[in-house]
Design a protein around this nucleic acid. Structure first.
Lengths: 122, 122
DNA sequence: CGGTTAATTAACCAATAAGTTAAATATAAG
DNA sequence: CTTATATTTAACTTATTGGTTAATTAACCG
């Protein structure tokens, strides 16, 4: 049983599902509305399965309206992803001096623990 | 052949791999250094495989230093994830009025296209 | 050179994922 | 009640994933 974040990332690792999320970012949609762009390339049960994956990952919620099942985005899962990636911001924002500085601070704390790896030959 | 973002999310969908990335956020590490916390629970070849997944996803790069293969984070893939999730920010930042407003604008644009789904019974 | 350490490759296995078609369920509507 | 629409479930297939052990490659060290 994978943890939530694993479920979420796993759900996002599919372009069909990401396209469905993109569609939902423009508002609620029923299963068949969501399915419409994909029916050339996959069956309806396949769509149902994708939606189930998104639902289990907490990325969407489904409700009932007559025979329809309107879906919408669920903020929390997106926030979880955003929070996770946030901790790496320093690595992708090109401020190499700050990064370098940062890496040195962590390294310094670390060297009290075990003096092995970072002395190299050459 | 999945697209890059799919590869990346897929690589992130595993707690072992995310732990490796966390370790690398504290600085470069060789394969065996990265492996160390996991050797109780998995073999070295398993670690190699995980690293290969991270590498193919562009999340890390490997270099050579004698018989060691120091690994480090690769900013771009993280930026891709951050950029992707950014487009959903409005959904997870609790400004429901703005969200509501936003959704209405998109809906308005949309209603010129097809007048079906949003009239409801009850 | 011969041994040791670091890491990878090969061959295999079990579980999961992503799709299929056919059948079933739920609700609305005539 | 019957039919039509929306969606899901079941059963099955194929490919991929994540792990294993055994063998191999690469580079250093005495």
């Amino acid at each position: 049983m994978p943890d939530n974040l694993s479920l979420t990332f796993s759900a996002l690792a599919d372009p069909t599902r990401r396209a469905m999320l993109a569609r939902l970012s423009e508002g609620e949609a029923s299963v068949s509305e969501l399915a419409e762009p994909f029916l050339k390339s996959m069956s309806l049960p396949a769509v149902t399965k994708h939606l189930k994956v998104l639902e289990k990952a907490g990325l969407i919620t489904k409700s009932k309206d007559a025979q329809f099942r309107p879906c919408k985005l669920n903020a929390e899962a997106f926030r979880d992803v955003a929070d996770w990636v946030e901790q790496y911001r320093i690595f992708w924002e090109e401020s190499f001096d700050r990064l370098d500085e940062y890496l040195k601070t962590v390294a310094a704390e670390k060297n009290k623990k075990k003096g092995r790896p970072n002395g190299r030959k050459k």
